[in-house]
Structure formats: C-alpha cells, structure tokens
Computed example of a mutant assay.
Amino acid sequence: MAKYRGPVCRLCRREGEKLFLKGSRCMTEKCAIERRSYPPGQHGQGRQRTSDYSLQLREKQKLRRIYGLQERQFRGVFERAERQTGVTGEALLRLLESRLDNVAYRLGFGASRREARQLVSHGHVTVNGRKLNVPGALVRAGDVVAVRERSRNLVTIQAALESVDGRGVPEWLELDKAGFTGTVRALPTKDQITLPVNEQMVVELYSR
C-alpha cells in the first residue's frame, strides 16, 4: 500500500472525529472538523450505509491513522499482539503506545506523532543514552528517552515542549522538561490509554 501524502485533515473528516494529526492546530477553530464535519468528496454529505464490516473497518482505519502506520505495518503489530497472552485488543494498544515515535510524542518532543516520527528518523532522540532512529522500536519499563543535546535548540522541539502542558503527559511516563528527558515508568494499561477507538472491533475484523 502506498504511503498517504495528502492533507491529514481529510483523514479526520473521513473518520468523522478529531484524530489530532496536526498537533495544536486541532485545538483551534481552524480544525477541519470544526468547519466541515462531514466526509470529504462530492458524496460526503450524502447518506452513508453502515454494516458490521464497515464499522469494524472504520475502527481499524481510525487506529491505523492515529499512529500513522501503513496497512502492512499495522497488520504486523496486530499479529504480534495475537501471540501475547491476555486480551488481544489491549495488547495491540499497548504495543502501539510503546513505539518510540509515540513515546516521543507523548513526552512532548513533537507536536504530533508525524513530527515525532520525523525527529526519531533523523536521529534527534536517544534511548538510554544511545541514538535510536527506528520509529517503530519498542520501549520498555525503565527506559530513558531523551532529545540529543545537539538537537535541543531546535525550534520545533522547544515549541512542542512548551505546549505539552495543554494535552498533558500520561501517568506511565515521567517528563523532565528542563532536561529534555523522559522516563518510562511502566508499560501502559488499558485504562491509561484514552483513544476514540473500540479496539475489540479491530480484533473482530481481523478474525473474520
């Protein structure tokens, strides 16, 4: 599947709710959902047919777009979640939240997951003192995620950290804003992951 390079606000409109793909812009009146809360395209305001499959598909697409994964990547994460013990849906969310690009976003190093992913890919982030440029790498409890010292004067990082208080840092992470450092206290539980997604529908879709 080709990588999507179009306007990300179009994705939010397709799902009918904010996915917070553009950072602080999503909190303002400029958000596309605030102005046009219907799907894009010439038939966007027409009557939409629904079925069990379409509802499950929309939940999967929503979750995939929130974390910015292509279908093959997302399927790989799901298969890994299936192999773990416990509830598959909860394991899926835990794996997605444990990705390095998501942790960098949650700590406020990037204004959006897309921005955080770019920072990781360009080598601006370290894990336990070592540079790691793989966005999909999984962090573990006790890991220390930080911005490289030579990158701390980047305007994008400083601006993102200034606005992180507005959305808050999850309780499973600990942020030292002055030191551009965050610590993974523990892997997140289902109750600590707040997303507008029904993960059980995703499991049902892949179980067909």
Rank of each mutant, 00 (worst) to 15 (best):
residue 154 L to G: 04
residue 175 L to V: 05
residue 137 A to C: 06
residue 123 G to F: 09
residue 161 L to F: 08
residue 128 N to H: 04
residue 161 L to A: 03
residue 142 G to Q: 02
residue 122 H to T: 03
residue 163 S to K: 02
residue 109 F to V: 08
residue 110 G to E: 12
residue 175 L to K: 01
residue 111 A to S: 15
residue 170 P to I: 03
residue 148 R to A: 11
residue 187 L to W: 10
residue 163 S to V: 07
residue 109 F to W: 12
residue 123 G to S: 05
residue 187 L to M: 12
residue 111 A to D: 15
residue 156 T to S: 13
residue 180 F to L: 08
residue 157 I to K: 00
residue 168 G to T: 05
residue 125 V to D: 01
residue 117 R to Q: 13
residue 116 A to G: 09
residue 131 K to E: 12
residue 117 R to D: 11
residue 153 N to A: 13
residue 170 P to T: 02
residue 161 L to T: 01
residue 184 V to A: 02
residue 171 E to A: 10
residue 183 T to V: 15
residue 159 A to L: 07
residue 145 V to T: 05
residue 183 T to Q: 07
residue 126 T to E: 14
residue 157 I to P: 01
residue 113 R to C: 13
residue 144 V to S: 02
residue 150 R to Q: 14
residue 174 E to M: 05
residue 151 S to C: 13
residue 187 L to E: 07
residue 152 R to K: 08
residue 114 R to P: 07
residue 111 A to M: 15
residue 161 L to S: 00
residue 157 I to Q: 00
residue 136 G to F: 11
residue 147 V to D: 03
residue 118 Q to H: 14
residue 160 A to R: 00
residue 110 G to D: 14
residue 129 G to K: 00
residue 124 H to T: 01
residue 134 V to D: 02
residue 157 I to W: 03
residue 169 V to M: 02
residue 131 K to S: 11
residue 169 V to Q: 00
residue 130 R to E: 14
residue 198 N to F: 08
residue 159 A to N: 09
residue 137 A to P: 04
residue 166 G to R: 00
residue 154 L to F: 11
residue 196 P to R: 03
residue 117 R to G: 14
residue 148 R to D: 03
residue 117 R to E: 13
residue 114 R to E: 15
residue 159 A to S: 08
residue 144 V to L: 09
residue 129 G to P: 04
residue 152 R to W: 09
residue 171 E to W: 04
residue 126 T to I: 08
residue 193 I to Q: 02
residue 151 S to M: 10
residue 182 G to E: 01
residue 166 G to M: 11
residue 131 K to N: 07
residue 141 A to V: 06
residue 112 S to W: 14
residue 110 G to F: 15
residue 154 L to D: 07
residue 175 L to W: 03
residue 185 R to I: 15
residue 142 G to A: 05
residue 198 N to D: 15
residue 194 T to P: 00
residue 153 N to T: 14
residue 159 A to D: 13
residue 135 P to G: 04
residue 113 R to V: 13
residue 185 R to L: 15
residue 135 P to E: 01
residue 197 V to K: 01
residue 188 P to T: 09
residue 194 T to K: 13
residue 141 A to Y: 01
residue 168 G to D: 06
residue 196 P to C: 06
residue 184 V to F: 10
residue 109 F to R: 02
